[in-house]
Design a protein around this nucleic acid. Structure first.
Lengths: 246, 246
DNA sequence: ACAAAGGGGTTCGGGAACAGACCTTTGATG
DNA sequence: CATCAAAGGTCTGTTCCCGAACCCCTTTGT
């Protein structure tokens, strides 16, 4: 109300964030996201509970509850005894099988737009930064393989996971933990919607070409081109998604 | 170890984040950061405890403990009764008064580099996005005033706060909550170090000119120029900071 | 056959956070 | 001057979560 400081409440509203939800839900969310993004692939996975709990900064008890929840959702299965453990049994759903695409949650529209904008900033940023790093040999081949895996994906579900893995790989080789987390959050936020994109052969091929362009530029150390290529890529999927929402 | 999936552990290591610290510390950190970044200016501030607690997603009890901690650090003072409340009493420290600049924490080097990289991505991104929004009149004047306030700052401490406020303002008008949070985190991570930059008149003037360039481009809706200007600005302070570390 | 080891499964006490009601101070208002 | 309302201050029962020890299952190696 004071003309001298017209921004009085705005900054505090924008900056003060609602902190953290409870540990159990956070853990479930985190693991479920990791699985859906393909951080853990199908088959035998997941570190022992004691290790995983420590890495997630959560007690083993809480972690176990979270795993139990995942088990009841059919995402994982658990076996006891030596050599046992929790394995991922997630077959990604094929889009189109559940034609609920038109059921756009009323309130989520803003969140979607936010995630798209955010992604459009951080993913090209990660590509740019990655291109400026001097990458080790295994990192270089990792990128190439990740891009190839997307192209080789036989069906829509596999494609979705391979795509996430590619984007996370780019973020990871950028070497900035804060950027990695940001890309993860963007991917997680978009995950559901990206799975709803109708999978046309043309779109996929185009997308793969863009991946290759990104990898190529990163390997050449051409940061500006890497960023531009990733921007193009984000804009393309962004356009598809916005079309779905209307 | 498996040649077929050489990235096995890498992604999970990169993606699984250590979750949350305890609520009390988080709240203290959040409020202290907000104050040091100038979200709450000197004089009378801070919403009533009940409101603030709700906005931070924390119980009033915990919030009160946090405020008590701030009070003992001399950041705020509290008055009871109607019209009372908690007011900010923070005079930002003048750099150079404590010549501990050379005491670079041994382990923090990596975190610093991370924050600088991250900022170099998200701040220009925010400027870019802000330029693409159709801004309301009060938002436009807010930007102009924020930039002017930096120029008008009489001393180093005031300058520091005005600078944060400017960058947060840019992020805010970008309209993306996820970006706002990212910029906040970057500013918070760099806050201490930025305060250690020797304040040469030349640097400050240059910095202000860059601010103006950013605002100008945003107001003109020239996204690419806005981003380029902000990149230049980030690179400039980045160079100064890296010089301090060696 | 047996023991060792590497996993998951279970239990329990203590401490942190929460929700919500209630008390106290103090400026404003009639 | 009396009263009210808007703040901070206090108390209590409950829920969540952690830490750590302990138990049980299964494979592997001798």
């Amino acid at each position: 109300m004071n003309a001298h400081q017209p921004d009085e409440g705005r900054l505090s509203e924008a900056v003060l964030r609602p902190a953290t939800a409870n540990a159990f839900e956070t853990t479930v969310e985190q693991l479920a996201t990791a699985i859906r993004l393909g951080v853990f692939v199908d088959g035998e996975q997941l570190p022992p509970e004691r290790d995983l709990a420590e890495r997630l900064g959560v007690s083993r008890n809480t972690l176990r509850d979270a795993i139990a929840a995942l088990r009841e959702s059919g995402l994982v299965e658990t076996k006891r005894g030596r050599g046992g453990g929790t394995v991922v049994t997630h077959v990604p759903p094929q889009p189109g099988s559940s034609p609920g695409s038109s059921r756009v949650p009323p309130r989520r529209g803003a969140a979607m737009a936010d995630a798209l904008d955010f992604r459009r900033v951080v993913e090209p940023g990660a590509a740019w930064l990655a291109a400026r790093q001097s990458l080790a040999g295994d990192q270089r081949s990792w990128l190439v393989e990740a891009a190839a895996a997307v192209r080789a994906a036989p069906d829509a579900g596999t494609h979705r996971i391979a795509d996430s893995r590619f984007h996370l790989a780019v973020a990871t080789v950028s070497g900035s933990p804060m950027l990695i987390e940001s890309v993860t959050r963007a991917q997680a936020a978009l995950g559901e919607m990206l799975g709803a994109i109708p999978v046309l052969k043309r779109n996929i091929e185009h997308s793969c070409d863009q991946h290759d362009a990104v990898v190529d530029a990163i390997l050449r150390g051409d940061a500006e081109t890497a960023r531009a290529a990733m921007e193009e890529h984000c804009d393309a999927t962004s356009a598809l998604l916005r079309g779905l929402i209307g």
